[in-house]
Amino acid sequence: MKASSAGNLLYRLNLILESALCDVYQTFQNRRIWLEMAKEDIGDQHRRTLLGPFWLLINYLLFVGVFILVFGHSVGLQFFTAYVSTGLLVWVFIAEVFNQSSTLFNRESSFIKGTPMPLATYIMRLLTQSLIRFGYASLGCILLLVLGGVELSPIALWALPGVALVVLMAPAVITVVAFVGAYFPDFQFVVRNVMRVGMFLTPIFWGYGEINGIRAQLYAFNPFTYLVEVVRNPVVYGTVPWMAFAVTTIFGLLFWILALGLLGRFRKKIAYVV
């Protein structure tokens, strides 16, 4: 009895996984669709403007520049430039991914109800958009590091696997947040609020030097800290943040398991919900 129910469970899990992988496979077979759509999405936002997509670069430079101008002199301009420009680079990407995905399936409802395209198409469309914006912001970040005269050790290259880890986690995060947002419409407001206060609760403008009290707790127990650290610490301190890499990897795997489960189980149900 027990053995057969365990076998049954395994069989069902296998079906769910198969369904999810089938969706992912079809999405990659038809990657032209979401690549072209994402390109147009970015293009639409800046069409007919003089500077075009360079606004994405300007947005970032202006945002970070103001922070450096206002708060930078107290801790040393070089340090603060490196600290804030890398921290915000990661944060802006994370915040956009979370905010946009909470309403993703509702925004795509006419496609979801009108074509049998695999569901991951929409996830990859959003990821591609976010990556294009992230690319421009990265240019801005490098520009600031150079202009700010930040000295980099070879260890700074560890920021690249850090970025890769954050980017690899993104599709899973989009999937999970999008499914929860589709079934629980209140979730989009929760996400928006969490991301708004998250910018201050996460060590982006603070967290260097000696930290204690509530800030120490926030530093240690906020998962976003580690996502930021995998990119920031190699650049700012020239050290490899093993702990942050470990925490991020674990969170990434958990999100991927959850994402594949949700995709496999509910991908054909979304058309009823949105």
């Binding site: 979801i112 109800k113 009108g114 074509t115 049998p116 054909k268 058309a271 009823y272």
Partner: peptide, 8 residues
Amino acid sequence: KVLYGIYE
């Protein structure tokens, strides 16, 4: 839509 594969 069932025939098209949108609904299962």
